[in-house]
Design a protein around this nucleic acid. Structure first.
Lengths: 164, 164
DNA sequence: TATTGTTATACTCTATAACTATA
DNA sequence: TATAGTTATAGAGTATAACAATA
């Protein structure tokens, strides 16, 4: 049996560690800002923001889950919190009685607006301040293919994640 | 009052979203791998890895906390779990009786070794597969200054984080 | 039968505040 | 007084499995 070479070279390790640390610090700061400015968790903000950007301010639960949450029950839980807070409503979908349509309320839109400036400020200050415009383009250009690759690649132990 | 321009331009938004999504998916996959291969959470793995890389396999609690955990009690909790699992030991520091020195055990080192190949495989496959060697260098070069900037910048609401 | 969503439940993790002990 | 760490406690979030209803 041959000795397997290390799977990651030093440059890769550096990129990986930096990536994780940067996002960790950024995310922590954002979560604090969202909590203080609008009493929202990051997941809740993501859900609201997605609804806010949707044509009718609505999505089916299944569509909402995509990319934000990893289990159905997790989404039900978060949607329940948002509903209790009056930021969304839930109603059976007209076309498919099994589905639930989640809709953002006016209060929900206001909440997003209230939180947005501070959110952008944190991202701008922490992430983009040390980067030039050209840098940001480069960064976006590098991450785009990675994102697509991750989205399209079935998580190696598939079964478990049929439903995201 | 002047209308404030959006703080983030479309390219920045794209970079930001991609960054968050990529790390989110990556981290989720890694956490699954670590749990299955070695019954470790990411935080626990980070702590063990740091100890494993330390000169004597030891760190004071305070040093250990740095960058991995955001509250002292959180570290006590995780260190307690690792100790209960026999992966580290804790003992009062010789020089400063207030401090606790955490040391990785042989079992701890074995655990890290057991988990490492799979970890590297996930990172390699998910993150680096779509990137060229040159891309990785560029990415590392972009993230490095951001990382340093974040480390050196006091979190705007300082007081709360005197102790990390 | 397959899909959509909810519920019950159990568990992990995090954070705040109060506390102990040493410097 | 300040620092290092622990404990008690409470809360937020997540995931699995069992379930009900619709397609």
């Amino acid at each position: 049996m041959a000795e397997s070479p290390p799977l990651l070279d030093p440059v890769q390790l550096g990129a990986y560690f930096a990536l994780i640390e940067v996002v960790d610090l950024l995310r922590h700061a954002i979560e604090q800002q969202l909590r203080e400015a609008g009493d929202l968790s990051y997941v809740q903000f993501q859900l609201l923001a997605r609804l806010n950007g949707a044509p009718e301010g609505s999505h089916r639960m299944t569509d909402l889950a995509d990319g934000v949450v990893y289990s159905r029950s997790g989404l039900t839980y978060q949607a329940g919190l948002l509903e209790k807070a009056g930021l969304v409503t839930r109603a059976p979908s007209p076309e498919d009685e099994r589905s639930v349509t989640v809709t953002i309320t006016d209060a929900g839109r206001e909440r997003v607006q209230r939180v947005l400036p501070g959110h952008a400020e944190v991202v701008s200050r922490m992430l983009f301040q040390p980067l030039s415009g050209k840098d940001v383009e480069t960064l976006a250009g590098l991450l785009q293919p990675v994102r697509e690759h991750m989205r399209s690649t079935p998580p190696r132990s598939a079964a478990r994640r049929r439903r995201r």
